[in-house]
Design a protein around this nucleic acid. Structure first.
Length: 805
DNA sequence: CAAAGCTACCTTTTT
DNA sequence: GGTAGCTTTG
């Protein structure tokens, strides 16, 4: 696709004088209207006063503190449209950065809707990494790379580090590549090149070898013409620091800078932004606008520095600070609960959300006996809501840790409640996708040693470590890529006849594929490669449950290649922007972590597992102390504010932790909810073994709403049972394993589907289930199937969960 | 070279 | 308690 605002265009000498955008669309019309003295454009009129201020404050630094659900994205996109409409800058003179591809995609779409085709010409709207890559590619030589450098993902990174560690004769069991990768990432996040790593830290790894290994790794990357994710920003930063002329060029180019989710920026990102936002002769104003919410900073553990947002006014003196506090998402009680909770944090910039909308239902807090009952109670609750017309797409279960998901999944499978898990392994991280990509990389970039190593013996072709070692030695000696080494070695006697034969065949394959790069559409070539290499075959022969899914993924990969002009273009983008939103049909409720839920909203939100140790998570407290607790609290705040109409919080008295049943204490966050805005409800099943050591008796915060019958009964039970651990676990065991307590809930009785529905499956048909694998239908009832799974045995499942095998 | 056996993990995760 | 990743074994 031709880019109407190519970089070359931007380099025109007169670009500083911005002419009116030529495109149609609302923005252009609005601008015409403004010029004609017709007042405020409609898209601005539609905003509330604070939003409008944020859009119209165009000169100088601006910090927009946008609370949850206050129209943050709307402000960002409208602001961009406004900058263009008022002729302050053209689309290619605006730098707009986000964290995720999803966010940048959404922003692009919304700008397009607002301002018409102008948005397509926003070449500098993207993730930090995408923009970093773009800049880096243009000046790659200056940091020791070539413009076509490959971007390594975590997997490649680890394998490279293993080589580096081994080359130094360090025990890679004691000092694992993974640990070093984390350490190096951490340094890169903090903007530290090898020479700048604090001595103490540098010494910590492998008895003082840390800095050395980091240096070696960077050297190896340059030799491979590769960059890891951290480099995309750190090398970009180095580039700007060491080449003032280039920095000046970008400062001149970016007349306006906008940053989304500023509270999530880490140190490199911050330094990078600060450099670009510095005033210059041609742009005396620091037109940087950061949008964020300090209360939603939940990524401290991966390097995000809340201080960046807290420090904004110091960093950018004279900054305009605008607070968006009018919430359009949640009802009054939900907001009040969230606000009261987050008020317990110190070190906030301070915001209080409010709404003109209804008070709505109070968030509820329910105690349950154990995690099993928690899943059952929530499942039943969802079914009840569903009967009242609640769409499952509007229901989410937000957990603190992913291990909590399993119990819900199991429950929903037996209930036949369709669900989806958000945030599993990403598409491009799957082994089959990475293998396929490795083949393509070998063809497109014959010097890509890491890719070659990956597929060297995949599928199994009888090559082993010994052969690889010979290739490596030769390659190292001759300073040539592995594939070339292989080609040279098959002409010699160094290899044993058998491997020599196999490698020769493989090299012939690669030669054939390479010769067709320009002759064939790249997706067809990819298909051919996967066929001829025996890779597809390998999975077809694989009888394990997920083989079918993997083949499906490979098909999807080939399909997705169509969107790119050629193989090179495809590979260039793949590492940065590849995610498969599993857009399956049908209503499903969502299960995800609280982290994954940021930015989303649902009518009904379930928040299970509010217990000390799990939430707030013990590790967070141990490792980060007070800061950790505050981040956990922000996580709780994020969770509650995802809810539009209903927030339902649960805590279990007993939870299995590392296999051991343990009695737990309700989360301190429960104490921090305002009594007047929360209902404590009796668990539907009405079985109480006691709440354990409840912290609810701090009546000053919680007070009078705790006088429901259930609560009082719980109080009584608590006194009776005290804090006797053994007593609890005994009861736990008894009730857990006693079938009568399950209230005669046969699977049959709980399935939602009506028998009148005619199934597309019949008895005896072979089917495939994502979780249970292949099986044979043994009975059909409406859209309920009884299936004998090859591995998992007989289960009753909803027909929508299986496909014909 | 693949299956079985053993050990060390066990919060959150984007690019 | 479950599992991933590695080592041992056939």
């Amino acid at each position: 696709m031709a880019d109407p605002f190519s970089l070359e265009d931007a380099d025109e000498p007169d670009f500083a004088r911005a002419p009116a955008p030529r495109e149609g669309g609302i923005a252009a019309r609005a601008q015409a209207a403004m010029r004609a003295g017709m007042g405020v454009p409609r898209y601005v009129e539609a905003l509330n006063p604070e939003q409008r201020a944020a859009v119209e404050a165009l000169d100088g630094p601006v910090l927009v503190l946008a609370g949850a659900g206050t129209g943050k994205t709307r402000v960002l996109t409208t602001r961009i449209a406004h900058i263009i409409a008022t002729g302050r800058a053209r689309a290619h003179e605006i730098l707009a950065v986000t964290f995720t591809n999803k966010a940048s995609r959404e922003m692009k779409e919304r700008i397009a809707a607002l301002a018409g085709p102008v948005a397509e010409g926003m070449p500098w709207l993207g993730t930090f990494h995408a923009i970093g890559t773009k800049i880096l590619r243009r000046h790659a030589e200056l940091v020791g790379l070539k413009s076509g450098f490959t971007i390594l993902d975590t997997d490649d990174q680890v394998r490279l580090l293993r080589q580096v560690i081994q080359s130094e004769n360090i025990d890679d069991k004691r000092w694992t590549p993974r640990a070093l990768a984390i350490q190096i990432d951490n340094w890169k996040n903090r903007g530290l090149e090898p020479s700048r790593v604090p001595a103490g830290e540098a010494e910590a790894f492998a008895n003082g070898k840390g800095r050395h290994l980091y240096t070696l790794y960077q050297e190896r990357l340059k030799i491979l013409n590769a960059a890891d994710f951290g480099d995309l920003l750190l090398e970009g930063l180095r580039l700007l620091r060491e080449h003032p002329d280039i920095l000046a060029e970008y400062q001149r180019r970016f007349r306006y800078i906008l940053v989304d989710e500023y509270q999530d920026t880490n140190t490199v990102q911050y330094l990078w932004l600060r450099l670009l936002a510095q005033p210059s002769a041609e742009r005396p104003q620091r037109n940087i606008c950061c949008v964020g919410d300090d209360d939603q900073s939940i990524y401290g553990w991966r390097g995000a520095d809340v201080d960046n947002i807290l420090r904004f006014e110091k960093d950018f003196p004279g900054a305009t600070v605008i607070r968006l506090e009018r919430n359009y998402r949640s009802t009054g009680h939900i907001l009040a609960a969230a606000a009261h909770l987050i008020a317990h944090n110190e070190g906030r910039l301070g915001k209080t959300l409010f709404t003109d909308g209804e008070e709505g239902e109070k968030p509820t807090v329910s105690g349950v006996w154990d995690s099993e009952e928690e899943a059952r109670t929530i499942g039943e609750d969802i079914e009840q809501l569903q009967r009242k017309g609640q769409s499952l797409d509007e229901v989410a279960i937000l957990v603190r840790a992913s291990f909590q998901m399993r119990e819900f999944e199991e429950r929903f499978i037996t209930l036949g409640l369709p669900y989806k898990v958000i945030g599993g392994p990403r598409f491009y991280e799957r082994a089959e996708i990475r293998d396929a990509l490795a083949y393509l990389r070998c063809v497109a970039q014959p010097a890509d040693d890491l890719a070659f190593e990956r597929i060297f013996n995949v599928p199994k072709r009888g090559l082993g470590d010994a052969t690889l070692q010979i290739l490596h030695d030769h390659a190292r000696r001759q300073k040539i890529p592995l594939m070339q080494a292989a080609r040279e070695l098959i002409e010699t006697e160094e290899l044993k006849p058998r491997p020599r034969q196999i490698i020769r065949a493989l090299m012939d394959d690669f030669a054939r594929w390479s010769s067709q790069i320009d002759a064939k559409p790249h997706n067809e070539l990819a298909e051919q490669i996967l066929e001829e290499s025996g890779y597809t075959d390998m999975w077809q022969k694989d009888r394990s449950a997920d083989a079918a899914g993997r083949l499906e993924n490979l098909k999807e990969l080939v399909r997705s290649m169509e969107e790119f002009p050629d193989l090179g273009g495809f590979l260039e983008h793949i590492s940065l922007v590849m995610d498969a939103d599993n857009r399956e049909a049908g209503e499903r409720l969502s299960i995800m972590t609280l982290h994954a839920a940021k930015g989303l909203e649902f009518e009904t939100v379930y928040l299970p597992g509010w217990e000390e140790g799990l939430f707030p998570h013990q590790r967070s407290l141990d490792e980060q102390g007070r800061a950790g607790l505050e981040e956990e609290r922000r996580l709780a705040y994020v969770g509650i504010t995802r809810a539009r109409l209903r927030a339902k919080i649960y805590f279990a008295t007993n939870r299995r932790i590392r296999g051991m049943w343990q009695t737990t204490i309700p989360s301190r966050f429960l104490d921090e909810l305002p009594a007047a805005h929360v209902d404590v409800v009796e668990a539907p099943q009405g079985n109480y073994g006691g709440y354990g050591v409840s912290r609810f008796n701090s009546l000053d915060t919680f007070g009078s709403s705790y006088n429901t019958p259930g609560w009082q009964r719980a109080q009584k039970n608590r006194q009776k049972n005290g804090n006797d651990n053994s007593g609890f676990s005994e009861r736990g065991q008894a009730s857990w394993s006693n079938p009568s307590r399950r209230g005669g809930q046969t699977i049959e009785g709980e399935l939602v589907a009506k028998s009148s529905v005619v199934s597309g499956f019949t008895k005896g048909v072979r089917v495939f289930h994502q979780k249970f694998g292949p099986g044979t239908v043994s009975a059909v009832d409406g859209n309920k199937l009884t299936v004998d799974f090859d591995k998992a045995g007989r289960k009753m499942v909803l027909e929508s969960f299986v496909q014909a095998a």
